[in-house]
Write a protein that binds this DNA or RNA. Structure first.
Lengths: 140, 140
DNA sequence: ATAAAGGCTCAAGTCGACTTGAAGTCAAGC
DNA sequence: GCTTGACTTCAAGTCGACTTGAGCCTTTAT
């Protein structure tokens, strides 16, 4: 596949694909003249990267998880990341429940609503983290 | 409370608290000379902000959700954000299961493992998003 | 054979979320 | 009364993840 086909199939701009290749997250297998050629499985790999990003992992972390630099993959690392996700999932559930409650609750100020506060405190046990923005990317 | 007390209680550096105040995410209620004074409920508000961040919301989104600029809060917005979180949670669950499987699976390459691919595809139905880094912040 | 389309490289720019640094203020202790 | 240390402002810097722009090279259609 050439780069625009991959771009269309994945929804990512070509510039991002070049950037990911430079970072070692994907590989092109050879060139047609100047032009990169990709094998079809790059699409799956991009889906995985995208999923990892939406799970809050950085590109470096994703590379670490899925680009074995040693003889085999780091299973302990994968388990640790899975555990990390479990904690994040709990937080998101608390946040979602808090939002849903706040959308219905009659209290003017959520901070006066004991139910809301309790939902917050459930997630309050966690250590501090800071993920980032979410941008939308339309699929053409 | 003064700014260092808030910093200790929340685990956030004073610089971040000033930054959040400037953005309108928190308020100081008056000054003692030059120095900001905060009321105790700022701690809860910071917990909420922190939770929102870990749920992938930007500071602007959090402000939008929890700083009513009209007569009352935007309940539809809160529901929409809750729905957004539901989709994110599903993705994270798929990712977590994928990671856990990959940590055990004997296949050299995850892309050759049908179980792993199936887990990916579950989350593949979603549109593309891109959150960001997670940094750790120690609580002293 | 030439021009337009689209790929290429490489450097620089952008954006959100902070952080850092310089320079000033002020209350408290010696 | 002067230093010290914790606070203040404001501008500039940083970091990750891309995006954009300039200038160059090919392939393809005319």
């Amino acid at each position: 596949m050439d780069i625009t086909e991959v771009a269309k199939a994945s929804g990512l701009p070509a510039s991002t694909l070049r950037f990911y290749e430079e970072k070692g997250l994907i590989q092109s297998n050879g060139r047609n003249g100047l032009r990169r050629l990709f094998s079809a499985n790059v699409i799956e790999r991009l889906a995985l990267i995208s999923l990892g990003r939406s799970a809050g992992f950085s590109l470096d972390e994703i590379a670490e998880m899925f680009t074995p630099d040693g003889p085999d993959i780091n299973r302990a690392l994968l388990s640790a990341k899975a555990d990390e996700l479990d904690r994040t999932i709990e937080e998101l559930i608390a946040m979602r429940d808090g939002l849903r409650h706040a959308a219905l609750c009659k209290a003017l100020n959520h901070f006066e609503c004991p139910k809301f506060l309790r939902l917050l405190r459930v997630a309050g046990k966690n250590r501090f983290r800071q993920p980032n923005k979410l941008k939308e990317k339309k699929l053409k």
